[in-house]
Every structure is written in C-alpha cells, then in structure tokens.
C-alpha cells in the first residue's frame, strides 16, 4: 500500500533520514520504533509532505506521491495524527472535527463519520461545544484521533500518540488504534513506548540515526536481545 524507497530528507541543510526504505501492506499495523531524534517523526512528516523529500521516492497504492503537496496527500487517503495533538486551540471540539472532513473527498461523508467517531469516543461527544484548549491531554488526543478519522483515511499515521499521557490513558489510546485497524484502516504508528506498540503491531521497523536498523514481525522484535536491552530495558 505504502512504499518508501531510499528516502532522504531533513530540515534545511540538516539531513535526518539517510535512505529509509519501508513498506506498509493494506490492513496491517506497522510501527516504527526508535529513540529520541532517530528520525521517526521525520519519516511520518515526509510521508505527509510537511517536509520536502531530498532524494528517493514514496509510492501510495501504486502511484508516485513523492512530489504531491501536503494538502493533496490527505485527499489521496493518508491522514496523520500529529505529535502533541496540534488541535486548533481557539475552535470548539465540533469545529475541530469539521476541519477534519475539510477535503472534497471527506465532506460528503461528514455526517456518517461524525456519528462513527462520537460512538467510538463518547467523551468527545460530551465536549463538542467546548473550546479545544479547555480539554485535558487525554481528551485532546482523542479529539486529534477523531479529527484524523473524519478525513476518511485508508492509511492513518500516528506520531507518538501516547506522549505525555497518563498510563491509563495510554492504554485507551492503544485500544483505539487497535479498533481503527480492526475497522479496516491501515495504521503506521511511531512510538517511544516500544513495548506497548509492539504488542499491538503486526510488523515493526527499528530506526537508528536516520537508518532502518532492523525489521520484522513484532513478536520477533520483542524477543530480540538488542531491542530488549536498548528499548525495553529488560
């Protein structure tokens, strides 16, 4: 479904990704794990075209999307739930969700999608008329995920959805990601919370210093000595 071929990218003159190649198949939950500054978020930002690609190519559903601008990527069916929520703080929760289905593709499905996300997140339903910045961190994350779903994505990118949340909320977030995947949306998730992510993922890539160090089925990675030492602290 999604294929990165030798992708090199970075900010200005700083190169962060040095020839990343990875693949996500339809229906999978794939995770990219790695330490701080390894290039996990940069990979997602490059896929969603927030960062211009320096070299290499990206394919989605067989089409080259390397040079497609960010706002067109969403129309193609890739939606990113960005790091640290990034809600529109001075808008209500409902307005944030409306922004989620901004594209021509998503707009006709607004009503059904809204019903769907409000069923999945009853807490969000209670907060519709509240300002987004008045919500707690966990609630904001739920709104961010709900907003991402409003775009009718076929592939959803999650950038550190558990960051800064209480442990109990973290489990809820992972449950939601599992449910989204179960409903047929393909998931690519980036996390520092390696253990919990590998538990829900089908496959994983380990990224170190902007290069893919290791990859394989999630179960296998969890049993790997290097990963146990470096990321799981076992």
């Amino acid at each position: 479904m999604l294929k990165l071929n030798n992708v090199t990218a970075g900010y200005g003159s700083t190169t962060i990704l040095h020839g990343i190649s990875l693949e996500v198949n339809e229906g999978e939950i794939v995770t990219i794990v790695g330490g701080n500054g390894a290039g996990k978020s940069t990979t997602l930002r490059t896929i969603s075209s927030l960062i211009k690609i320096a070299d290499g190519s990206i394919e989605f559903e067989g089409e080259d999307i390397t040079k497609i601008p960010a706002h067109k990527i969403v129309e193609r069916g890739i939606t990113m739930v960005p790091e640290a929520r990034q809600l529109f703080p001075e808008m209500t929760v409902l307005e944030n969700l409306q922004m989620g289905s901004f594209t021509k593709v998503a707009r006709p499905h607004y009503k059904e999608k809204l019903d769907e996300v409000l069923t999945l997140f009853p807490r969000v339903a209670e907060r519709l008329s509240q300002g987004a910045q008045s919500l707690s961190g966990g609630e904001q994350q739920m709104v961010a995920i709900a907003r991402g779903m409003m775009a009718c994505p076929r592939l959803m990118l999650f950038d550190e959805p558990s960051l800064g949340l209480a442990p109990i909320v973290v489990s809820q977030v992972f449950d939601v990601v599992k449910k989204i995947a179960a409903s047929g949306t393909t998931v690519l998730i980036v996390e520092q919370n390696v253990f919990q992510t590998l538990q829900i993922a089908d496959r994983g890539y380990v990224i170190e210093n902007g290069e893919i160090g290791m990859s394989g089925p999630a179960q296998e990675l969890m049993g790997n000595d290097h990963i146990r030492k470096a990321y799981l602290g076992i």
Binding site: A70, H71, V74, M80, Q86, F88, M91, M99, F102, A151
Partner: peptide, 24 residues
C-alpha cells in the same frame, strides 16, 4: 463558512491545517 473556518484553522496551527487538506 468552510473557507472562513479554514482561514481560522490556518491562523491557529498552520501545519495541522495542512494535515486537514487545507491549501495554506
């Protein structure tokens, strides 16, 4: 209006607006 909300969204968070499919 849809365009009006897109304008406000862009003012509040440019990157997130792009992720919504708004041509910033």
């Amino acid at each position: 209006t849809q365009l009006g909300r897109a304008i406000r969204a862009t003012g509040q968070n440019r990157a997130a607006a792009q992720l919504m499919g708004i041509n910033v």
